[in-house]
Write a protein that binds this DNA or RNA. Structure first.
Lengths: 120, 120, 120, 120
DNA sequence: GTGGTCTAGACCACG
DNA sequence: GTGGTCTAGACCACG
């Protein structure tokens, strides 16, 4: 699984979001070993500490676990991806509709705009 | 126009976004005088310096202008609201579709989910 | 409240334990502002990052909360000290009896030894 | 004598503590041959290097000695178990009373709590 | 001055 | 090589 960071924005949330998404969509399977802290740090060009911090945050949410001297692993709990995808989807929908409503659109208008949106 | 700040997140972008949205939707009309820096600071519970900084940023984008000793005004340029709304809408759509695609949805699926979304 | 660190042992658990104990015994009251990260770092002679990390761990357990640019505060939840004291007491008792049992003592013997212990 | 390791915590101190306790309580008699490094490593699921290192530490404290090509033995000195038990007991008592005092208990309270403790 | 984030780099335990 | 902890120090947002 490829990771990509937009420098200039906070790194941890970006990494956490991408790894969470990877778990949610099954690109990272339950129990699977993740790339090492150092490898990810090199790949996306950030400090290993930052990757470590991201993993510790994900661990706090029960998405990953660490085995000292071995690596980090996706949690074995098969329910997590299901729950994650549902929650992340809801979050995106809520934020999108909220933001669009702040711009003056009604719910039906938002849906129509989405239908007409030409996604590259 | 009411402003609301989520403490804990950066204040300036939040304020700038809400004021921009206000201009985009016409809640703040071209040429209209804005509330004073102090008034806004009290209303949302932040430091006046922070509000001042936000206005200066908006001024840099041509959305507002200041009259010394009097206050801040929405730009008189009637094109600004139109342009603002178009740009902000596009930004929200792009981000929403990008994020949903990262979650494994295809464009048609995203549209269908939006249609089924039950916005409170 | 005074903090003291035994260099050579992991710093974060020591700090977290002392602050938790302070909350448990009421030395740090609900809602009270804690010393700043930098002040504690200077006082106990560790890096501010380490103190910050400790606070973030305590935040994850709901014992403290931060207000950006202002400081860290003991949680307002008055139930927390009660729960904390009960849990920490149980933990210490469990560990003590477990360790003593590993040393070959029976429960009654452990109690007798505790009664005869001459605490300075 | 059975050994059990809590993965995630440093292994050497755990092993050393358990073997020391075994000597202190006579489960491992003076002069007795210990299990081989490999056998222990397999039993508790750690690397043989780690077990070897633990034995070398215990050797440094005079608790065990090695016979090349044969294995590791508990020291023949009959005084060692007595001394070990006394020292380990004192250490546990000191730590327990210290920690409980940090939690706000007085010595008499600590004793009373220990008396009332319902050890499973 | 205060918390928040990040880089750089050291050193440890374990494998 | 891998995670875990820590120091040192920079820079940001906010007050």
């Amino acid at each position: 699984m490829e990771l990509k960071i937009d420098k200039g924005k906070p790194v941890c949330p970006q990494l956490a979001g991408q790894i969470s998404a990877g778990i949610a969509i099954g690109a990272l399977a339950p129990g699977e070993k993740l790339k090492s802290v150092r490898e990810i740090a090199l790949e996306v060009g950030v400090n290993p500490n930052t990757v470590q911090k991201t993993f510790e945050q994900l661990e706090g949410e029960g998405f990953v676990r660490s085995v000292r001297g071995v690596g980090w692993f996706v949690t074995d709990d098969g329910e997590v991806p299901v729950r994650l995808k549902r929650e992340m989807t809801k979050k995106l929908l809520d934020r999108f509709f909220d933001d669009m409503k702040d711009l003056g659109y009604t719910a039906p208008e938002i849906v129509r705009i989405a239908e007409e949106y030409d996604y590259e």
